[in-house]
Amino acid sequence: MISSDDVFSHLQRFRTEGTPCALVTVVRTLAPTSGKPGSRAVITMAGAVHGWIGGGCASGAVLRAVKDALADGEPRLIRVSPPGSSSKGEDGVIDFDMRCASQGTVDLFIEPMLPPPVVRVHGSAPVARHVVEMATRVGLSVQVLAPDTDAASFPGARRHAAGHDVPAEWPSARWSVVATQGQGDRAALEASIGTGVERIALIASRRKRDALLRDMEERGASAEALARVHAPAGVNIAARTPEEIALSVVAQLVEWRRSGVEGAGVGRDAGADSCCGQVS
């Protein structure tokens, strides 16, 4: 039987690698069951089980519940018990039928362990540096692409490149922030569009946004790709200073993380033109 130390060793490895998994713990049993309270396992989306939570009678229910937890990011308490059991129907517990002859009951807590979303920040302007710092503090994994800089300039960033082209070995990103502010805008935006991120937060005035999008269209960018660009970037807090602008942009990233990206597109004017510090 695998020890708790081994279970947590697997968990740490998966978290370091960025592999989604769930920590499953037996919290209550009614005999006969082979799993006992405190038994644990780490289970991946592919169904690989590292640890011990009992025999195969409950495995189908556990694997289904793990996949659901990894899909929505929410923990859940499940109960696997015989059909018609009086223990079914308790608030806060998801019921599954025990189909094995043992007819035992087992409660398991499933805690999804999802890697933090990855955001790429293009640029070395003060706003970009504040975005990196704040995004790291709210639990995002930050990659920085900034010409003529080194990694020491961006404490907390997980990856750094001194250019706008994304290294092939980097993990894929969910979002991109173009905070170049006049220093390589087109190169950064083109690189962001080319990587297929879900959304691009472009720190620019409406006038500059329109010019950049026209340029990207002339370079062959599709309408679908351009629709992923959100500009002016950030939620509307009337931001003016670099710190305030960065705060508004990171707030937008949090909004995307917690509620999805529905309704966030080029036509949504979430911030004032002055938020980017440019009027042209």
Rank of each mutant, 00 (worst) to 15 (best):
P75H: 10
D150M: 01
G104W: 14
V80G: 12
L114A: 00
A168Y: 05
Q183H: 14
H164P: 11
E74N: 08
E198R: 00
P83Q: 10
G104M: 05
G104E: 11
E198V: 00
M98T: 10
P75T: 06
R79P: 12
W170M: 03
A188N: 05
E74S: 15
G184S: 09
E90A: 09
D185I: 04
D91N: 14
D91E: 14
S192E: 02
Q183I: 10
K88S: 14
P155D: 12
Q103G: 14
L114N: 07
I193Q: 08
P171M: 04
G196F: 03
G163W: 10
V178E: 03
T180F: 01
V80H: 11
D185A: 03
S176F: 00
A152G: 13
G104L: 07
G84Y: 13
V119N: 05
K88P: 02
M98P: 12
G163F: 07
P155I: 06
F109N: 00
A157D: 11
G156C: 02
S87G: 13
A135G: 15
V132Q: 06
V119K: 05
L77I: 03
S85R: 02
M113R: 12
A191F: 06
W175F: 13
E198K: 01
R199V: 09
Q103W: 11
S87M: 10
D107Q: 05
R99L: 15
M98R: 03
H164E: 09
A188R: 00
L114R: 04
A101D: 08
S124P: 01
L114V: 06
E169V: 08
T180S: 06
P171E: 11
F96L: 04
P116A: 13
H122V: 00
L77C: 07
S86P: 06
D95Q: 10
D150R: 05
P82W: 09
A152I: 01
S192T: 00
V197H: 05
S81M: 06
A135S: 14
I193V: 15
Q143L: 14
Q143P: 06
R137D: 15
V127S: 08
V121Y: 08
F154R: 00
S141A: 14
V132H: 04
V93Q: 10
